[in-house]
Computed example of a mutant assay.
Amino acid sequence: MCPADRARRAFTLIELLVVIAIIGVLVSLLLPAVQAARASARRIQCVNNLKQLGLGLANYESAHRAFPPAYLGDPKASGAAFGVSYPDPNGNTLSGFAWGALILPQLEQAPVHAAFNFNLPCWAPDNTTAARTKLSVFLCPSATGGDDGFAVHRYTNGDSQAPDDGGPFSPEIRFGHSHYVTNAGVNQPWGRSPAYSSDFDVPEPLPNGLSAVINGPFYRNSRTSIAAVADGLSNTVFLGERTSKLCDGTWVGVVPFASVWPKPGWPSDPNSAGDLVGSHSGPDVHDHPQVIIHAPNHPFGHTDEMYSEDGDGSNILMGDGSVRFIKKTIYPWTWVSLCTRNGGEVISADQ
Rank of each mutant, 00 (worst) to 15 (best):
R192L: 02
A110Q: 14
A114R: 13
P289W: 12
T129E: 15
A37S: 04
V336G: 11
Y180W: 04
L31Q: 13
I214Y: 00
A58C: 10
P217R: 00
A77F: 02
V25Q: 13
I173W: 03
D248S: 12
P3Y: 14
R223S: 04
P68V: 11
I22Q: 09
F82G: 00
A349L: 09
Q188K: 08
A101V: 03
S40C: 03
Q188D: 10
S279C: 13
A36Y: 06
G344Q: 08
A114H: 07
G278D: 06
E345N: 09
D88A: 00
V25A: 15
N342A: 14
S222G: 07
M306S: 12
F200M: 07
G158C: 12
N117T: 10
T224Y: 00
F67H: 12
P125G: 15
G313C: 04
D304T: 01
C2G: 10
E108S: 15
N221I: 04
P121K: 07
K327L: 11
D284V: 04
A124N: 12
A230M: 05
D5I: 10
P68E: 13
S85R: 14
N92R: 08
P205I: 00
E241D: 01
N92F: 07
I226A: 06
R132A: 15
A41S: 10
P283L: 14
A66F: 15
G176C: 05
G145S: 10
N127I: 11
D350C: 04
A143Q: 15
V229I: 07
P3E: 12
R223M: 05
P207C: 02
I20A: 14
P262I: 03
Q188N: 08
S314H: 02
N117A: 13
D164A: 09
A98Y: 00
L210T: 08
P256H: 01
T243H: 01
K134Y: 03
Y331N: 14
I316N: 04
Y196C: 10
P189C: 03
L13T: 07
V47F: 02
F11V: 09
